[in-house]
Design a protein around this nucleic acid. Structure first.
Lengths: 288, 288
DNA sequence: CTCCCTGATACCCGCGCGGTATCAGGGAGG
DNA sequence: CCTCCCTGATACCGCGCGGGTATCAGGGAG
């Protein structure tokens, strides 16, 4: 049985990301030769070639691609172990709730109120995330629970309880012809040439192909829409970040989005359970 | 940011399991002093006390208990990374299916037939498990897919697709009065003093309290039932291992058991997806 | 043909990990 | 009350390995 050290995994991931030993070494704060040697030893120990180096380019082999994925989840698990242990050991025992900035603002407000009013639930810190960051933070231990969205977010390794489901709205510039509409369809908004949909980064940080502008943050897209350069389809409850220059129009045929409260698939502590319970109870109240 | 090495985690887990530095060191194949030092350094690095040592006994602190849980999942992830990488790199690319020995025998038979008949699906090796072992093997990479049972198995970190649901039967000795019955209730069988239910080990290896005999394997319990010393409630499809000395009686009010095909929550490769698809298709055929 | 880019090799040094020997403190038994 | 022993902590040492610098090697570009 081979066993890998997290140091080796970290080295491997750096090279797999950069596909360049020199740059990877620099990122790791070390020299290139020991890095080359470490990777070589790793390959020897596993008995598997991880990179194809043909003098000018470095590429992942199939096995390397597998390790790339696996190593990242393993490193996340190790980091989570460290962070959760530290948090458990320190007097301050607030749990961390991750949520997309601007999303479900009023629900979150009421949830936090309910939690702080209830003596049973622990203190909660809120950390605001961009796009799909909640899952990352749950996985590496920087957060304990999160508000996430089905089906848009990535739930691998994450459990969740449904809170509420809502339709989506298109956010368009107030001075655009579409702004006068009562309701639109996906077909209509995807065929507007002067208002392409903004492109969000995928999990690996790259962008899908398409005509729309590349954005990373909510305020970037808010700005772009206000400038009349893009439109956006989001859950209705996200409207909290709308500016006067924005108009929200219900989209009749966009898939509904379910807001869920999510936690890492393992480690369901009593504190986390209390918060989940508070959230589901609140959702029941709001539904009735 | 602290980062833990897998070596340290392994040391910690050994001590957490044994609650005894000397024995843990022996299990690890090392001397006790370096182990003590390693744990001490770990505590220093995390800034958290992990064990309460009061000269005569070693106990986990709250933080230690957290790390115990987290470290085991992290180590599983690391081991899985190594194993899956090795498997991906070697010419032989069979995927490994874990199943409880004796359970759902005919379904499995047909599934394997369907898979080997289909050129699209990969080769499949079958590994037979005792009780809840499938989840462990999925988590540490020794298996890629598994047949598991809801609600009895532990699905933390594991995704699954339902295959079929069935009622449970009580297995009793053929010479016992109950053997003549057409149908029994849970109440009836739990109040038979001379036929206690066998006790299976919990996830941590210990046994729940109770009058029944402790068993670890299917053949142990099969033997015990044949000897008239215990009874057992299992899904109807598990009857494959019945001996002539066994009689199966439907239990009217036992919770139904759903057999599912399961895989680790991350890493859903094309090969695994093909096997899952074959299994769900087969279940559809069998249901109609 | 030459230069340069990039990964591999050679070699050295120092830290850290693991080993042995020993200490320290407290519980149990006479 | 004293002693023995059990168990974890401390002290100290040696060496292996991880990381550094210098250099090589091979192939693409101009």
């Amino acid at each position: 049985m081979v066993d890998l050290e997290t140091r080796e995994l970290k080295y491997f991931v750096a090279v797999a990301k950069e596909l360049h030993f020199g740059r990877a070494a620099e990122l790791l704060g070390m020299a290139q030769p020991p890095l080359s040697r470490a990777i070589k030893q790793l390959e020897a120990r596993l008995g598997v070639r991880l990179f194809d180096r043909d003098r000018r380019a470095v590429a992942l082999t199939d096995a390397g691609a597998v390790l790339h994925r696996e190593a990242e989840t393993a490193l996340n698990a190790v980091a989570a172990a460290a962070r959760r242990t530290q948090r458990a050991g320190h007097p301050r025992r607030a749990i961390v709730l991750a949520t997309k900035a601007g999303a479900a603002h009023d629900t979150l407000q009421r949830l936090l109120d309910a939690i702080s009013a209830d003596a049973e639930t622990p203190d909660v810190d809120v950390v605001l995330c961009e796009v799909g960051e909640q899952a990352v933070k749950l996985r590496d231990g920087r957060a304990d629970v999160a508000l996430m969205h089905r089906p848009v977010d990535d739930f691998a390794g994450i459990d969740a309880e449904e809170l509420f489901t809502e339709r989506q709205v298109a956010i368009v510039p107030a001075n655009h012809p579409l702004a006068a509409r009562e309701m639109v369809t996906m077909d209509e908004i995807s065929s507007v040439p002067d208002l392409p949909m903004a492109r969000w980064p995928l999990v690996d940080g790259s962008y899908p192909a398409g005509p729309g502008p590349e954005v990373r943050t909510q305020s970037q897209i808010a700005h772009l829409v206000a400038l009349g350069r893009a439109l956006l389809v989001i859950p209705a409850s996200s409207r909290a970040w709308q500016w006067p220059e924005h108009v929200a129009i219900p989209v009749s045929d966009a898939p509904e989005v379910t807001t869920v409260i999510a936690w890492p698939a393992h480690s369901r502590s009593r504190e986390i359970a209390a918060v989940i319970l508070a959230a589901t109870r609140l959702a029941d109240v709001m539904a009735s």
